[in-house]
Design a protein around this nucleic acid. Structure first.
Lengths: 168, 168
DNA sequence: CGGAATTGTTTTAAGCCTAAAATAACGGCC
DNA sequence: GGCCGTTATTTTAGGCTTAAAACAATTCCG
């Protein structure tokens, strides 16, 4: 029951603030999902900056490369990071300038380049990843193991539902 | 069991691609949440551009104003949209230039301004919102009602867990 | 072989976003 | 009144992001 007249302390709203009870469940669900995602993401962003003077896209890029020791092409990277290829060009440029990542031309196909971690990039990533893991664990600490598994499964369904909705 | 040797068709990965089974459940859960959020968000972005030649931040801003007919201050808006106040200045500037939103000075406090929908902004929003609602419904159509309610409840727990983790 | 369609990447133009510093106005307090 | 801490917003500098166009190399196929 919202009291529009005399809010003692406006409690720092989010996307869900001001939603009406008669709004569709789908919409409320989507907004809550977005809120959760934004909360976690911005907290990780904040800590990456504070503790490691870096950004989330840079961290995500190093993370993907760490999982693929053979290197990845620009296209593979842009798909995994879910960003445009043009975006990736600048991001890789900055990381190359930083010495954390290297571009290597493909001998068979001169269009493609393979991006991989440099020793320095790997070292930097290895410094950050334990802290990152702890942050995520802490933020999700309020959920029990069975809650997490349930949520994980429901999100799998959601992912499939979203993916399927455009193939019609 | 991933086969790195001969992938018949690399199926357009996402953040979860390349995750190892021994990664922590918390991390896998977070990446799946982020993937779902990104998938839905980028699809909505794409359709807003295609069908209404606008962007998600603009739509979200109109949406918040629509829920608060009395208008909102810049600070209230930035909290609800979960963006920085500096960001909001530019966003509002563009929408004012577009004639969709208006700034009104507070007579009691010359620091604050109240932002509200113009008639044109309201009209524009009312055109978009049924389509937007349909998009979300379609994307979530693969989930049953009880799944949605369960997911909604679990995300409430998650939201609380994340919010509580920084007050320690 | 030689054009045509395709694929991989970069460029471009514009908008979004943040943190931090700067401005400006308010309120309390001597 | 005049200073001081707080609050509301804008400015600044730099990075992130996208869609669309441009460029370049490959492959298809007659």
């Amino acid at each position: 029951m919202a009291d529009a007249a005399t809010p003692t302390t406006p409690p720092a709203g989010d996307f869900e603030t001001g939603l009406e009870g008669n709004d569709k469940l789908q919409l409320r669900l989507w907004l809550r999902l977005l809120t959760c995602s934004n909360l976690i993401e911005s907290e990780i962003r904040r800590r990456l900056r504070r503790d490691f003077a870096t950004t989330l896209p840079r961290f995500d890029l190093l993370s993907q490369l760490d999982r693929s020791p053979g290197g990845l092409s620009m296209t593979e990277l842009s798909q995994r990071l879910m960003v445009s290829n043009g975006n990736l060009t600048g991001l890789v440029d900055r990381l190359v300038a930083d010495g954390q990542v290297s571009r290597r031309a493909d001998p068979k196909d001169r269009r493609t380049s393979h991006i991989s971690l440099t020793a320095r990039g790997k070292r930097h990533f290895d410094e950050m990843t334990p802290a990152h893991e702890t942050w995520v664990e802490d933020m999700l600490a309020g959920l029990g193991g069975s809650d997490m598994r349930q949520l994980h499964a429901l999100l799998a369904q959601l992912k499939q539902s979203v993916g399927g909705s455009k193939e019609a």
